[in-house]
Design a binder for these strands. Sequence first.
DNA 1: CATGAATGAGAATTCATTCAT
DNA 2: AATGAATGAATTCTCATTCAT
Lengths: 205, 205, 205, 205
Amino acid sequence: MPKITQQKKEAVRMDILNTARNVFIEKGYEAASMSDIVTGSNRSFGGVYLYYSNKEDVFLDLLRREYNNMALNFASNNSTWSAFVQFMKEQEKRIREVDASLAPCLYEYFIAGRRKEERRKLIDERYEAVYNNIFTFLNNGVQRGELYPSQPLETFVHWLISLLDGLFLESMINGFENIQLAKQFEFILTVCRSALMPSEMGESQ
Amino acid sequence: MPKITQQKKEAVRMDILNTARNVFIEKGYEAASMSDIVTGSNRSFGGVYLYYSNKEDVFLDLLRREYNNMALNFASNNSTWSAFVQFMKEQEKRIREVDASLAPCLYEYFIAGRRKEERRKLIDERYEAVYNNIFTFLNNGVQRGELYPSQPLETFVHWLISLLDGLFLESMINGFENIQLAKQFEFILTVCRSALMPSEMGESQ
Amino acid sequence: MPKITQQKKEAVRMDILNTARNVFIEKGYEAASMSDIVTGSNRSFGGVYLYYSNKEDVFLDLLRREYNNMALNFASNNSTWSAFVQFMKEQEKRIREVDASLAPCLYEYFIAGRRKEERRKLIDERYEAVYNNIFTFLNNGVQRGELYPSQPLETFVHWLISLLDGLFLESMINGFENIQLAKQFEFILTVCRSALMPSEMGESQ
Amino acid sequence: MPKITQQKKEAVRMDILNTARNVFIEKGYEAASMSDIVTGSNRSFGGVYLYYSNKEDVFLDLLRREYNNMALNFASNNSTWSAFVQFMKEQEKRIREVDASLAPCLYEYFIAGRRKEERRKLIDERYEAVYNNIFTFLNNGVQRGELYPSQPLETFVHWLISLLDGLFLESMINGFENIQLAKQFEFILTVCRSALMPSEMGESQ
DNA sequence: CATGAATGAGAATTCATTCAT
DNA sequence: AATGAATGAATTCTCATTCAT
């Protein structure tokens, strides 16, 4: 019965989200206003509120889409270690591009709202998802005899997440060149190698 | 002609800042209002604006004082490595107490304002100060033949700062128990040891 | 050329009005929204606006139909007085059911809009219709020698309408039990009897 | 410690309320906006919100003051019946002036909000206050042997309130001339007399 | 005829900052 | 110096009504 179906609706949403994305990146979460999104998307207030009921709603939809697509994918056709190395390269790339990403907004949103019940849930879910993803991947490597970690894997994964978060943070605040991101990654891989003890030789890095 | 001035002035400032500190910790930077500070300090709007010309001004004075006192102090009576270990213990302690500190506010302020020219300066200064502090300390150890770093010291220091930042961030968002902070620190010290290669034996940790 | 038209049209109108009635009763005139009516009748905005050009238009059509059907009918096969008594019983019943009726909405509409020219006309018409209806009925009784009013009939009728209106109002606001509606009606009939002086004896209340 | 004390504050409130009163009388409760009150009182939004937190808050303060002053005062130096007659004259006067009073607004407010919990309380309180006031007064007359009511006093008082409410309503909607208010009051006093049976002779009416 | 997405004016509310006293 | 009432721009959100399809 709808005249201009799901597709059109989806298109409008995408249009709004595109604008919103730029606005959020440009101004940050708090400083962004619905008015910015409305104006930026050449739409009316009503037109935007038809799809999203407030700023947070827009932001959360944006996040959902952004981070669903970007699920941490570990290459599956290689050894665990080389897939891990690839994953780390991917992370490095992401960190370089942090300024044009929603990440700063996300951190702002999470930090400022870390005490708000509704946001906590999201925060916890996200951390758990990332943690499980990495842990499972590495643990498989252990099961298959490809890794002989010198540390409890749990600790390593928590550490890795903290470290990556720190790199994101420093890069967005200080810029990736200033913190010698590339060199740090070389060092980090060394650390990871001696913590995970991949059995293979030669390859990767 | 003004008599009591300087001392009195300072006392008023301190009083305002005490309230402001609590307000910022409680609510975060954006969400804190001048009204909270005015009311909380049993003062008038005019009374506060006489000393500070806006919210940011209050916050910056707060930061300045907070972080001047708390300059990273490395113990000087010990070996470089054991002073470093002590430094790291101090960091761990601070991270545990992050929730009652200005740190979350600071991150919020830096992230949201990372594009604003005026804030950039402060950000850069702070990073440089911390970096130099740590670098100089470790480098002295190297000069004195107490450390034989397996990595360029520059990279190591950048890495350390990022990592500590990441731990702060994760602790304030997810809680230090959830990220196994203590165990991470054990692991981190191991990594630091093999990166810095302290010459001594036995002691530490 | 149009075939099914008139009947179909009427059917649609009735369908819309049925929904609208519930919406108005539920929410009141102001608080009711076109959206409620549109959604409630499983119709589209355009679909409703095709038949009614705005909320007021819907409401007025509703009123027209509601109060046409419900023209005050005085029983004709009895004496004037007993028909009057029956009329009063009917009023009492209506008042008891006021909460499920359009009356509250109507009062809201009339009170809020008593200054608006367009509404004035309707208000005046309605009052006159009710007044004439009752007056004519009673006056016939006088002509026929069944009533010997101790008061000018005009005054009595105005009084009766005010009183009934007051009872409607109090019942919808305070509830008919709280205002002892039944006992009031007993008293009122006594008053009416001594004001109208029906010639008969024995019968009725 | 406040600079421009209670008196000034009160003066501002009165100023706001004066404007608000006109706005409410002019437009009705729903149709009145804070903006009207702000503009009308030559004040700023903030300036009004400093004293009242929303439209309802303004309205309720207005009511409180309006109806506190106007507590139904029965003359005490006369017989019960003549005080009652005076009370009724007072009511008639009020009804004549209903168009320049808050009453229409009040009815609107009560009718539209009769289902809202917060308003119910106010409604009930007001009814009870009025009821008790009249009942107590008349009952004293009974105790003192000045009245010999032919009806239960409770019923009479409920009836009187309904009737007066009806007269208010009809007057505000149809105009007091159109409903022959004066003549109605004559009739009503007759009815009251025969319901209350004052013992005295001659006087009043 | 019918649809329902889109419009946009309007209402409420907040809060950093000023300024008359 | 100090006060705190007042300002008003900025923001969020709603809903009757229109109009392209």
